[in-house]
Every structure is written in structure tokens, then in C-alpha cells.
Write a protein that binds this DNA or RNA. Structure first.
Lengths: 193, 193, 193, 193
DNA sequence: AAGTAACCGAGACGGTACGTCTCGTCTTGCG
DNA sequence: CGCAAGACGAGACGTACCGTCTCGGTTACTT
């Protein structure tokens, strides 16, 4: 979609170095004060190399987050939807308060005024995870564990929303991790009647 | 806390001009590309005047938003908690998708890497409104309209979270305004058992 | 002519620092490898300050040369045109082989593909000096020391040309300073018949 | 001297394409804005091929000028030294104001801060031509047409200098082509007494 | 005729400097 | 003494070229 140079000749070494560097710089100075200049310097890479492959700092960070998370946040399926959701949301909340979360919150912030980044965030990060969650919830609905008269997509929103809300609006980690309580409460509204 | 010059001699004209200018510039170029330089120029005000009274762009925007909203988003109390919450959340969602919302989302974004701004956002904007909401919910709990075994503070989080979540993670306006459905669903979980 | 900011508010400190820095950097690394970046850094001045007042490296160098030479190369008038010209041309040749000359040759080089700089070089440096030389030659013509059937302007060209020729085409200093012999020879052709 | 690859295997096609390209690019954008990148692209040649055979842009241009001029500027010998010099200098002045001249002036400019290029310019271009001129002048001296008490090498300097001087210091073409007058005047000083 | 060496095109790379933009501070009159 | 105006030091921005370095591919010699 974006007109890039020949990706076959791309240097894997440089790609790795940049993705690692964005974490390192963000840890040292905070995401807001992270500059592409510093990322390039830390990675031992020329600035044009960075700009050749990524359109913005946020795009680098998104790549780095995706790369680091990989499939490690896959959705569990033990048959118990409450336990699965609690486990998953706790993992997400933990992620959001760690190193990766610092980057991730920066990405969301930057996406507020960068539509391309917002689209990439949805397409490469949110949608796949939402879809997997939707799949798990569909199973639960089929098993009669959740009400059937509400789109599972909407359920996902209701479940994840509090976690993001608390992180982005500044709740401390301890509060965030009360999420088990949240899950149970929200699930009250999702029980089959 | 911040060492400012004598506020009694402050020019009200300059204050008004700056608060109006931040809206005008943000509307014209987007919050992300709004610079203090442009705000000062549009306001017909010297840059030092801006820096004398506000520590950052976000602080100006927060002042402007607070100034413009005033008490207009006060919480209704018709006795019907469902109607009141629906009305209030719809109003919030509408605000977040308009001119003010653009600024507001910018403030939240900037607060991700500016702790001072995050604190100011909580202290001058969120907390007062949350407290008013908590008050209304306490009344509803007392009236037996809501379950009593959950802190009303947590209820507020669960109710508002989906609105913010959808706005900040890029749902379109149409989706956002499905919030009445959300409210009802969430309230299912808050009903007294 | 060039639209600059208000020159009254210009910082004399910054101006001096830049003019000195161009000499220092050129001495250290050669004019060709002198960058505006290095000039600004050496001067302890921001790059925009440099670009605010000068359009190019050559323009800075030209200012610096003019500033340093000042009136020190004024034309002598002892009544003896041969002695005066010899003195003057020797001084020019000496200048061209020293620190100032290194810069000056760089300016001439840069002017080859920068018409604005070429114009500035003629207007602020060459023309005033040529005019003073013409004045001296006119006196000599009036005194019958030089032929009257040749424009004194052309005489100036013929007299100065060999000095520049040797410097720019790479003659060493020793050769250049044979200029007394050159002057005498050229003057043979300028004697009244 | 410079360690090059086996010249026997050199691609004549690439050589020609580069020498032609430097003219084309310089005509289109001016010598100063001519880049090796553009030369290679215009020539349809890889950058390493250029760098393999030439150390700098100036070296390419010098090769191109030498290649294009060839022997076409050979010195005439009609027996009349005044006519021969006038013809020759007029031809040089004409060359210097044309396409080749634009390149040539660029080479001289670049040579001011590139000693290798300066040396190559003298060795491959200037010296052979000066030597041929010296030969012609020696003949004239022997024929009693020129004074014998001045090294003919110096005479060459005095004769060519005004042409270069006017071109390099920015005199317009019309002035430059007054060179016949110059020649006569200068020759006054070279006549046998 | 096959093998092989080296030049070729293409173009990504680590860099440097460019000229611009915006920051937040400092300086200078004006009211 | 706060104000407008705006120059300043600082430094990141995104771009253009630099000169180097792989890559395959294509000659053109060697065996």
C-alpha cells in the first residue's frame, strides 16, 4: 500500500536494531521525548534507513510492540469463559503497565492526530486480537455461558474498555489490576437471562 | 505551586484571546499540528505571555475546554437512573466527537507523556465530574435502583469506559453513539440482584 | 533587497561570532569542507540565526573577508605609479596566499555556480577596489605616466588578471610573488607612446 | 597511481555514457547542482561503476572536457604571431562562455579545494596547452617578433590571464570577447625594444 | 564448451549536512 | 511591570547525496 523500496533487499539487521532501539530510548527518556534521530543513533543506523521503512515514530513503535508481543497474548480456552477472560484481561493490564505498555500508550496518543497510524494500529494490532476474542466469546455464547442477544463484538468493547480507560486516564497500576472484579461485574450484564 | 507573576495584573483580554485561539487553530490544522507559536500569533499575543501563564499546549487546551464546557455538562437527576445515565453518556459522547472533543482527545494524548498535565486533567476536569456522577449513583443505590455491593466509583469507571475506549481507539462517530445500548447492557450488571 | 528580519534588533555578538567562526573552521578543515553547521556550532549560534542573515556559506565568507580587510588594502599614492602598483599588487598577492586568501578563493569558486554570490562579490568587494584603482590610474594618465588611449578600467583588468590567474590555476606562492616583474612588463604596454 | 581495476576490461559504453551524461546534467541543472548520483542515473550506469573509474565529480568533468575538446584547440602557426594569438585567445574565450566552459569553470572552482583535481587539471589540460603556446612564442622570439629578455612561460601567463580573470570574476560574455583589444595591448609590452 | 573471474546495473546501507520548523528564553521598547 | 513583538540558542525534522557494500546477471577470457 505504501510505496516502499524493494523489501527483499531490506537489511534484517537494521530492522531488528531499530525495533530494539525504540524500546531502549523510550525506556531511557520516555516515549514523548523519543526522537527518530535518537532511535537511529542508538540503533547504529542512518536516518534515511529509518524513514525508508517507517513513516513515523508511531509506526516504528507499533512494529516494535507487535514484534515483541508476537503470539504471546493469545487467547486461552479452558472452557471456563470467566477464567479465560479474567486471565486475558489481567495479562493485558499487566502488559499496559510495563515497558511495552509505555510504548503502546504513546502509540494510542500519537494516533489521535495521525489517521494513518490509527488505521495501522487497528489493522495490525487491535483487529486480530478483537477477532480472536470474538471467537472465544462466540464459543461461550454457543455453550450458553453468555447471552445471545448481544453482538459479541460489543461485548468485547465493554470488557476491554475499562482497562484502557484506567490506563489512559491515569489510574495507577494497583487500581488497574482490580480488573478481576471488573470482569465479574461486567459479566453480570452478559449472562444469559 | 508554579511560580507565576502577580495574577492580579493579568490581562483578561490576553487570557480570553488565547483560549479562543487554541480552538481556532486546532479547528484549522488539527490539534497535533497546533503550536504555541500559532496560538500566540492567532491570539495577537506575545509568546512570553503564553509561557508566563501556561506551562504547555495541553495546559492551554485544558483551560480552554474547562472554560467552554463550564457547567453545561452537569448531571441530570430525574429520579430515573437509567434515563439520567443515558442522557449524560450520550451528551459526553456527542461532546467527544465535536470541536471540543478534538481538543480533549489531544489533551488525553499529551497527558500520556506529561505527568503534570495528566494530574491537572484529573484534578480540574475528571474528578469533579466523577464526583458528581458518584453522587447521583449513590442516590440510585439508596433508592434500590442499583446493587449496593459495588463501590459507586467503580460503577462510574465501567459506565464511562466504553465511551472513551471507542473514541480513543478510533471507532467512528456512528458507532460511538450506540452508547444507549451500551448503557443498558452495562447496567444489567449493576442491577440489584 | 533580500527580505530580512528587522536588522535593528540584530545581535552584534552573533554576527561577530559567525564571521570569526568561518575563519576558524576554514583554517582547520579547509574552505571546501567548511559547513554552515560547523560554523554555527563554532560560533555558539543557532543555525536559524545564520540562515536568517546570510543566504549561503559564500555570503558569510564574503562578509568575513570584507570585515577583516576593511580599508587595510587602500591604494597608495606616492606619485610614482610603478611603485604604487607594485606595492598594491604585491599586497594583493600576499593576501591571496594567506588565511584570507583561502576564504577568498573559496568565494570565487562558489560564485561560479551561485549568481547571487557572484553579484555580491562584485558589488561589495571587487567594484569598490577596482574603482579606487581606476582613480589612481586616471591620475597617472593625467600626469602623462600612462597612455591615454586605453580605458583605465581595461588597464585594471590587465594588471590584476595575472595575480588571480596564478592563484586560481594553482601556481605556488613563490611564483605568484614574481608579480613585480609582471607589473613592469605589463606596464610596458601601458606606457604613453 | 590510484589503484583501479583492470582497465582492459573496462566498458567503453559506460565510459562514454558517463562523459556524455555529465554534460547533459550540467546543462540541465548547472554544474554546481550536478551530482554523481544524477550523472550515474542519466548515464544508466551504477554508482560504483562511476566511483571505480573516477575519484570525484571534477575528475569526470575534466575527462569529459578533455575528451570533447580533443585537439580542436591546437595552436595555429601562420607566421604572424599577433594574428595567431588573437585567434587562439578568441577561441579560448568562446569556449569558456559555452557549454564546455560551464563545466570548465566548475572544474576550476572545485580544484580550489581539491588538490588532486588541481594537479590533474594542470597535468592533463593546462600544461600541454601552455607548452604548445610556449613553443609558438619561442618561434616568434626567434623571429624577432617578441622581446627576448622575458621567459616565454611568463608571456603565456600574461596573455591568458585576462581571459580567465574576466570569466571567473563574472564579466559578461560581451566584455570577454573584447579580448582582441587586450591581446594587442598586452603585446605592446612584449614587443622587442 | 564449461568454468570462472571481474565488471556491470541496481539499489540499500551508515553517514553527514542540508535548510526549515518549533521550542522555550531573552531582550527591547510601549503603555 | 505586564504587554506585543520578535531575535535568539538549541536541536529535531525529513531530504538529498555521499561513498561503500552487497547482490544477481552478463560478458569475455581461461582451460
Amino acid at each position: 500500500m505504501t510505496p516502499q523500496p524493494n523489501p527483499e533487499r531490506r537489511s534484517e539487521r537494521a530492522r531488528r536494531a531499530v525495533l530494539d532501539a525504540v524500546f531502549e530510548v523510550a525506556r531511557a527518556k520516555g516515549y514523548g521525548k523519543t526522537t527518530i534521530e535518537a532511535i537511529a543513533a542508538t540503533a547504529g543506523v542512518g536516518k534515511p534507513t529509518v524513514y525508508r521503512w517507517w513513516p513515523s515514530k508511531g509506526a516504528i513503535a507499533l512494529d516494535a510492540v507487535n514484534d515483541r508481543i508476537g503470539d504471546s497474548m493469545d487467547f486461552p480456552d479452558t472452557g471456563d469463559i470467566v477464567a479465560d477472560l479474567t486471565a486475558q484481561l489481567t495479562a493485558v493490564a499487566a502488559m499496559l503497565t510495563g515497558d511495552i505498555g509505555a510504548l503502546y500508550r504513546g502509540i494510542i496518543a500519537e494516533a489521535q492526530s495521525d489517521p494513518d497510524l490509527a488505521a495501522a494500529l487497528r489493522a495490525t494490532f487491535l483487529e486480530p486480537r478483537i477477532r480472536r476474542c470474538v471467537g472465544r466469546l462466540d464459543t461461550a455464547v454457543a455453550a450458553g455461558q453468555l447471552r445471545a442477544d448481544l453482538p459479541t463484538r460489543t461485548m468485547v468493547d465493554i470488557l476491554y474498555a475499562p482497562v484502557y480507560y484506567r490506563i489512559l486516564l491515569g489510574a495507577g497500576p494497583e487500581e488497574t489490576l482490580r480488573s478481576p472484579l471488573l470482569v465479574e461485574t461486567v459479566l453480570e450484564g452478559l449472562r444469559p437471562s
